[in-house]
Design a protein around this nucleic acid. Structure first.
Lengths: 345, 345
DNA sequence: CTGAAAGCGCTAACAA
DNA sequence: TTGTTAGCGCTTTCAG
């Protein structure tokens, strides 16, 4: 029986207290299962609060306890399959621990990233997770002054950051390119992504190392590092166009990520050429799309969901004052149809 | 110069007030740009608050004003390209108006959907947007009692709901299937998705209407409505497998959405058959993936980003007490390579 | 133009 | 086992 108020009127513990003939702290304790409250009173209060449609205010609680049980999650954009899976992982363990997620996007803009983190700080989130941060270690003083724990996923700033989870980009690229070399390719290109400086540098480094290890001479013209093209697919198309145009065209191309590889794949087809018959292609991430295109992409798996989970777990540890160290996930080769031996191998 | 406190200590307006030699309401007013505060005092206070690293507490403000400037966004899962774009749209206009987004997932489970909305209510969000709701009109009494404005995007409950934005599913399916008939197909299948009851029903209805309009007899065996398969791609594969197995196999198939069509596409290829030579395929949504597979999918465009924006705009109107009416977006045919005339057309 | 006082809804310390 | 009192940080009357 909901006798209390009309639209918008909220029932508070004081209202319940009045109805139950007790003080409001008693209601508060009963509802939170404080063992000091007698079983009968507790039950009576619980019943009453149900009948009256009570909904505790997380806002008031947050003000009082100085913990909101909310965390901020900053991503470049949500409309990226890689990011979406990471968010999924974060959300999963957040919910598991009773935390809510406040989502914000940085659009890969460092200024906006900072603004957004400030906003989350105003909301008094208990901590923040930033994916593909451009600020990195800049958070360390920040953290000290405002006491807001921050965890990074695949930090893209030059600077190293203490609390972060990431993939081993160097190794991942090394594995991918070594695979291409192993099946016989000697002319291997790389289409990079300067918009993610750190991963891009590392993947390029792994690429070089793999070439060196395979005894292959690097060639500047096989390196496509186009700045200013934000879209992965488009960068892949344009990159591949460049590579197909040069005289001694590579027989295999390692792409910064799967979306880039998909763009490259479509460009190869547009030229009337075939993958892997004319060009072998390898990507990075192993997003779902990688296995859905034709041919399916050979790629390096990045455990996105697990990385999201791990970041949230790390943040929770930080909140509990426990010790925390960086986590680097191992990359794994997923061989599929987009790679074969070169035609004249 | 940050002389104030160490880790975790927060500067409040009282601290600033003390430092400035004014009362704390004056600080509050100055910082919010209240015109009654003299220019000099205001500036002095602003400078001081910067120096002292002041970050206003949205929690305290929310408690006092009873508005949090946060909205809840409930989706089935974030790891779905359709959903991600909708979220992007919502986030875009939310930020534009200074609102934060609290993200939660329902995993298509009505019980969980309700639980999650309750949780958002406890957080005192100003309103909630639910995508693919299974509860629909059940929110109407709910709304009345707790006074929480709720807007739905593509409501999936049987019941009609007042405040919602959606696509015209019937018309969309009608357009797609009519297109297939127009190019000469007479045996047209449909692979549905009972997990989204309302859209599924409507698309099936549009499918039937198009057949009728084209003077084609419907055939039960061309209708695949497999319950219990959550994954779109998998449902597409299994559905297509069924359709390819029957004697008089359809020459064209309309799929519930693009992901389903991608599954179907890959299954056709697995059978050594070709799209569109042996089977034409049409999807729904026009997610990015639709144009990236080979051949690119003919599909019905759903303006996901705009729908997200519209939902948020609608919610803002509701919060301002303005009149609001349902918005139904028009579907649009995007013809691509996955459809051609039937072989023996 | 500014200050004093009150209170949003809750929890925590201290009494009884 | 329960009640009293105080206060989290802000905004909002109401006075001056």
């Amino acid at each position: 029986m909901c006798t209390e108020g009309g639209i918008g009127s909220r029932v508070s513990i004081k209202d319940i207290a009045r109805a139950a003939g007790v003080s409001h702290p008693t209601v508060s304790r009963a509802l939170r299962g404080d063992p000091r409250i007698s079983a009968e009173t507790a039950e009576r209060i619980r019943d009453l609060s149900n009948e009256m449609g009570y909904s505790p205010s997380a806002v008031a609680r947050g003000l009082r306890t100085r913990r909101t049980r909310a965390v901020g999650l900053v991503v470049t954009t949500i409309a990226d399959p890689f990011v979406a899976d990471v968010v999924d992982g974060v959300e999963h363990t957040a919910l598991e621990h009773g935390y809510s997620l406040i989502l914000a996007t940085s659009r890969s803009d460092p200024e906006r990233e900072l603004a957004v983190v400030r906003l989350l700080d105003e909301r008094r989130v208990d901590g923040v997770i930033v994916a593909a941060s451009r600020l990195g270690a800049l958070y360390e003083p920040h953290l000290a002054t405002m006491g807001l724990p921050i965890v990074l996923i695949n930090n893209q700033a030059e600077s190293e950051y203490l609390y972060s989870v990431s993939i081993d980009d160097i190794k991942g690229a090394f594995i991918a390119v070594s695979h291409l070399a192993r099946v016989g390719h000697r002319a291997i290109g790389y289409v990079g992504c300067p918009a993610r400086p750190r991963s891009h540098q590392h993947r390029q480094q792994g690429y070089r190392q793999a070439l060196a290890r395979a005894g292959l001479a690097p060639c500047r013209r096989w390196l496509v590092v186009d700045d200013g093209i934000a879209d992965d697919v488009e960068r892949g198309m344009l990159g591949m166009r460049r590579l197909l145009s040069i005289e001694e065209r590579p027989t295999a191309v390692f792409c910064y990520n799967d979306m880039t590889a998909v763009g490259a794949l479509n460009e190869v087809k547009r030229w009337g050429l075939g993958v892997p018959d004319d060009v072998s292609l390898a990507g990075f991430d192993d997003i779902r799309e990688a296995s859905l295109v034709t041919p399916p992409l050979t790629t390096i798996r990045q455990p996105r969901f697990a990385m999201g989970q791990e970041a949230m777990t790390m943040l929770l540890r930080l909140l509990d004052g426990e010790a925390v160290h960086n986590v680097v996930f191992p990359p794994r080769l997923i061989p599929r149809g987009s790679v074969s031996s070169p035609a004249d191998g």
